[in-house]
Design a binder for these strands. Structure first.
Lengths: 184, 184
DNA sequence: TCGCTCATGTAATGGGTTACATGATTCA
DNA sequence: TGAATCATGTAACCCATTACATGAGCGA
């Protein structure tokens, strides 16, 4: 699956593994994340499969860059994936919910501590979706006007992220109140 | 992490890998899922670490069961984990959002097809949280009254799931409307 | 001078899925 | 008769993280 994120970005323009990592951090990180090491190994695999090709771009005073370009086979593969309907729902894994689920024997204070810390984290994340993400998009469009038509689709995913964090904050606030007032 | 889900259930009462799988499917599946094969290998590992012990329970007309019991070391480990504050947020991975993000070159109809199918799936899931989950809890409590005090904590996680699916359905409905009306 | 950014990669390990293998009982 | 439930496990594989290794330039 990381495969398609990489091909998607390379459709915008040829770039290096490092570039792909910074793009991901700035945009898809909230719904698809990968470490640099995985990006490098995946690109190598994609090249072996003929979906991308690479060439070295020498630089002065900095390490050389290996720049990847999508091939026609890569574009066809990507388009095929986009059209394949997704019949499964996203798999959620949330350690906090596991702690809450098994929280009874531990007693309310231990669970409240966990919940309050997460509330702080999710409030920051919400602020990030509301302020930083739109700024970053503006910044990208200023530099690369060709990208502009894509941003309406990006915005839809940002809205999801914002709504999700709002929900998480609300649930945490409610849950904390319920445990504080109603649980022994 | 699956480790702690298994220890958490075994704290309720000794049971087999198969039992653990059915418990998970009925309760934690929405925020922590595991296949049977992984449950079996994890239990084996936990036994090697001394956190659980097992014995064979012969049965007539059915395969024998290997029943696991938590040790004191296992209980201590579990309690330690519950108290360790979680400083990270859950990692989301959502293929649908990747498709939306990169959806522009594909054109609106392809993305709309994806969104409509997911809307159907998430509506069913929402109904499940609202109807089936409370029923199952009632069923468990009827059979094992000792479990009752835990169910208030379970209910908090069910509320999260319900709110999450509501949000997902709302976002899908809005997003479909936006694309249908405003996108070319 | 210390840490950050730029830049690429490999190796070991861990977490998780898929496929394989077995076999009796029960219900439609 | 065929599928589902009960019941356990192993082996191969894939995806992902952590740790390791290298090294120049730049700003505080």
């Amino acid at each position: 699956m990381l495969k398609y994120v990489l091909l998607g970005f390379l459709n915008y323009q040829p770039m290096s593994g490092y570039d792909l990592s910074t793009w991901m951090e700035a945009s898809t990180d909230n719904f698809w994340h990968a470490k640099l090491s995985q990006i490098y190994t995946t690109l190598k695999k994609l090249e072996k499969e003929g979906l991308v090709v690479s060439h070295i771009e020498p630089q002065e005073g900095r390490p050389d860059r290996r720049v990847y370009t999508v091939t026609k086979a890569g574009q066809a593969d990507f388009n095929g994936w986009l059209q394949t309907t997704l019949t499964e729902m996203p798999v959620k894994k949330d350690e906090l919910l596991v702690k809450v689920f098994f929280g009874f024997p531990a007693g309310k204070e231990i669970i409240l501590t966990q919940l309050r810390l997460q509330l702080d984290l999710h409030r920051r994340k919400l602020a990030q979706y509301q302020a930083e993400t739109p700024e970053m998009v503006q910044h990208i469009v200023d530099k690369m006007p060709d990208i502009a038509p894509h941003t309406r689709y990006w915005e839809l995913t940002r809205q999801f992220g914002e709504a999700y964090e709002k929900l998480y904050v609300d649930w945490l606030e409610n849950t904390i109140a319920i445990i504080e007032n109603d649980f022994e």
